[in-house]
Write a protein that binds this DNA or RNA. Structure first.
Lengths: 142, 142
DNA sequence: CGGGATCCCACTGGATACTG
DNA sequence: CAGTATCCAGTGGGATCCCG
């Protein structure tokens, strides 16, 4: 699985330990709702990709990010970056020059979020095939 | 943080190890896109909540699920459950009785996905406050 | 009880044009 | 270059009705 070369052996091992553990119960429904909402926004498609790109690249300008995230419109990129900045995930440095220059990089908080996503990436990479098989079987029956 | 009582100490420890690790680079862009898409659908708001509910409760009927996921419409629940079944995450047992009886429970694959989400839950629970602070600061400046 | 079928609106998000 | 503003199509998702 090529995608796994993305992670260190330690991360993959940790992800497996995760997958084998059984999440216990007991959680305040209100907290749960807040957390679910937070995950919901933060697990957005473009946010994920920006997070990953900046994790790799460090600091990038607006246009560089747009170039390297295929399919994103400038509107969505602006919107995603603003949201991430508001949530404290990225830092935005504006250089008062002309033409304008703006640089983006992850905050420490943003970096930790990238780490938290690792388990999901590992799961998806490992189980992509099984999901596709399940889908094919389901569609054949219908 | 109350939400953390949801997890075992081992899971929390693993999540922290995650957060401190630095994801390396090098990944096939096509695989990356596939994986990102898969995460995108699987990280959907309702899917997450159903996953979590069934992880706790084991097996539940349609109406029981609807009752315990606040705010979900019957349409979205049906749609979410079909999608999850198609992806091989849940099993659907139909009892040919009248009135109808249908039971849902996670497959092994679905269980492992629940585990993979743990890191995200831990991150969100731990950093909810910090995100809210960042947001307040951002809004005050604007 | 567990949905399927319809209607309909609100919002998401793309394309385009303009600007400091 | 890095946006903002505007317009517009597509669709996600709620409400409602119905049926086996």
């Amino acid at each position: 699985m090529d995608a796994l070369t993305r992670f260190t052996p330690e991360q993959v091992a940790a992800a497996k330990r995760y997958s084998e553990a059984i999440p216990p119960t007991d959680i305040d429904p209100r907290i749960e709702r807040l957390v679910a909402d937070l995950i919901g926004r933060v697990a957005d498609k473009w946010t994920m990709l920006v997070l990953e790109l900046l994790t790799d690249a460090g600091t990038l300008r607006f246009t560089r990010i747009a170039e390297r995230i295929e399919g994103i419109s400038q509107k969505m990129l602006t919107q995603t970056l603003r949201q991430m900045e508001r949530d404290g995930l990225i830092e935005r440095k504006i250089y008062p020059v002309v033409p304008p220059k703006v640089e983006y990089n992850l905050t420490p908080l943003g970096l930790t979020l990238g780490g938290a996503f690792c388990g999901l990436w590992v799961w998806a990479a490992e189980n992509l095939g099984e999901v596709e098989r399940a889908r094919a079987a389901f569609d054949k029956k219908a």
